[in-house]
């Protein structure tokens, strides 16, 4: 047998080839590290930026709602309240609707083609930029619901939540646009979770003679619940951080007002409005508010993943 090696010049790897191989590995590691670096830098930049304000206002910052750049006096209570109340209300409205819509497009109620079209439309709705929804909310949705809000005020003005006359921008329109934004998220995730419920489980339920809704309520929803809750929490995180559409419709009032018909504020909206023009201690206070927002969304997101992991072990 002739020596075959002579024609295989790289049978022994050249140092250059080895170097490329090894550097590629380190480049990949470096690229992956960028994620961690960016994440820590975000936390660090926002935390360091807010130190001044933290030292000056401490915990009071979170509960007072006096935001006055002229007097150099800051408290983000109104914005924090606004962030929580808008996202929670949006969630309360969007969850039953999103899960219901997901059931409608997974459980064989209508022909597959129509289901696919609805599914596609829901996903496209999620792709519409939030600033565009904001424009729509200002010019179309808010004028459209104004009479309804006025009626609400006339009937329930004695109730604190509806105690101010509607003036256009306000908390309720912001909640409604948030519903439009998180509905596709909840629908899409719920649909994926329902689709993952094993066919055997469905057949078992129908096999013992339940109706379609008996199967859905007693078997299918419980099997998919961990994923759905995870999706709902992710949607909550998204709602809390949502900026543009809310900024454009909530009214950006620095004053705390318990009425949902009055203009309000959220942390994200406050940042979008004031950050560009702020200086000195206002920047620090905005950073403090941003830090609160990061902590809130981080908690919600990590909790969401924990729930998915924790509950999915059971089924």
């Amino acid at each position: 047998m002739s020596d075959p090696d002579s024609r295989y010049l790289l049978r022994s790897r050249t140092p250059a080839e080895k170097l490329v191989d090894i550097s590629f590995r380190y480049i990949a590691i470096a690229m992956a590290s960028v994620v961690a670096i960016v994440l820590f830098s975000i936390l660090l930049v926002v935390f360091l930026g807010s130190l001044d304000s933290m030292a000056r206002y401490g915990w009071q910052f979170l509960v007072t709602s006096d935001w006055n750049p002229v007097d150099d006096q800051y408290g983000a209570g109104a914005a924090i309240y606004g962030t929580l109340i808008t996202s929670l209300l949006a969630l309360i409205i969007a969850v039953p609707m999103g899960v219901g819509a997901a059931i409608f497009i997974t459980e064989n109620i209508i022909p597959r083609q129509i289901r696919n079209v609805i599914g596609l439309m829901v996903e496209l709705l999620a792709a519409i930029p939030s600033v565009v929804l904001g424009v729509w909310a200002i010019f179309v949705m808010e004028p459209f619901i104004r009479p309804g809000l006025e009626l609400l005020y006339e009937l329930f003005y004695w109730f604190p939540l509806f105690s101010t006359p509607p003036m256009g921008p306000g908390t309720i329109p912001a909640v409604l646009i948030l519903v439009v934004m998180i509905l596709p998220i909840i629908t899409a995730i719920s649909r994926d979770c329902l689709n993952q419920v094993p066919t055997e489980l469905r057949q078992a339920a129908y096999g013992v003679g339940t109706t379609r809704w008996g199967a859905i309520i007693n078997v299918i929803l419980p099997a998919a619940i961990s994923g759905i809750i995870g999706g709902v929490m992710l949607a909550l995180g998204r709602a809390m951080g949502e900026t543009m559409a809310v900024t454009m419709i909530i009214g950006n009032s620095n004053n705390f007002n318990v009425s949902l018909l009055a203009p309000g504020n959220t942390i994200a909206a406050m940042l979008a409005n004031q950050f560009g023009e702020a200086d000195g201690s206002q920047v620090s206070s905005l950073m403090y508010a941003a830090f609160v927002l990061i902590v809130l969304t981080l908690c919600v997101n990590i909790f969401a993943r924990w729930i998915v992991k924790r509950l999915s072990l059971k089924y």
Binding site: V38, L39, S41, I42, V45, V46, L234, G237, R238, M240, G241, E242, T243, A268, L271, A272, F275, L286, M287, A290, L293, I294, T297, L298, V300, N301
Partner: peptide, 11 residues
Amino acid sequence: AGVPSIIAGVF
């Protein structure tokens, strides 16, 4: 992925 987009701007 869960960090609000406005925070990326602040950063």
